[in-house]
Amino acid sequence: MLLDIQNLTKRFGGLTAVSNVSFGVERGEIVGIFGPNGSGKTTTLSLIAGILKPTSGAIVWKDRDISTLTPFEVAQQGLVKTFQNPQLFPELTVAQHMRIACHLHVKRALGIGRLRTLFSGMPAELDRTLEHKIGQMLELCRLSSQRNDEAGALSYGGEKMLGVAMGMVCDPELLLLDEPASGLGHDEITNLDAVLRDLKSHGVTLCIIDHKVGFLGRLADRSIALHHGAVIATGKTEDVLANEAVVAAYLGKKHA
């Protein structure tokens, strides 16, 4: 198993945001995490990404507990998270964002040899590889035409796609997407759906949270439903969505 979440709990004072959550992610699959607002989805993802520290429980990544690592160490391990509200570097262009996101790639390629680039500049071959990769990723995320635009000038959907593109260019083994579809229009969601399927076909494992059942319902191989911080259903996506407890959590008991 690539990622194994074991009895994860997070308390903020008296509030238990995530309660005893356990699930696993296998290599190459798309796992969806559903739940209405306030069900602990984002907290769970932030715990995995190292942004928050769990109160108890373990986050096992390739047989190693990573729950004490900092966010950049988690990213170096191959788990990269995108943000629900698009996070940008103001003033910089789309291409410059991508160049910064290539940090891990350059680090892996050159290691301590990066010190040499202080004198001689980036090796031309690596530079070409990065440019090619950035071009490919922007193409995939439909951002090629805005490559040299300031990222702040992108539409909301464009900013979200840039987040996905930056996450992808880190070469993650597992990409954690925090509500990638929220705030997007119909066409943008169709586009996102295509992009994520494309990523899957390239062998990337995805863990996506959303409260939009329709979008994620079509995409996820397997799903986990959260309510009040606890897992209420897990299994094949269509079974989870048909689960009485899940329907009750979303629509109230009358509809279950």
């Binding site: 900092t70 950049f72 943000f83 160049r99 940090h103 680039t117 880190c170």
Partner: peptide, 27 residues
């Protein structure tokens, strides 16, 4: 030389949005 290198990009990331920089693997 420092600013033209990968260090300069890390510094820009820190200046503009250190939380995003950290999730992209920057120490």
């Amino acid at each position: 030389r420092i600013l033209a290198s990968w260090i300069g990009r890390c510094l820009a990331a820190i200046r503009l949005n250190d939380q995003l920089g950290e999730t992209l693997g920057i120490d």
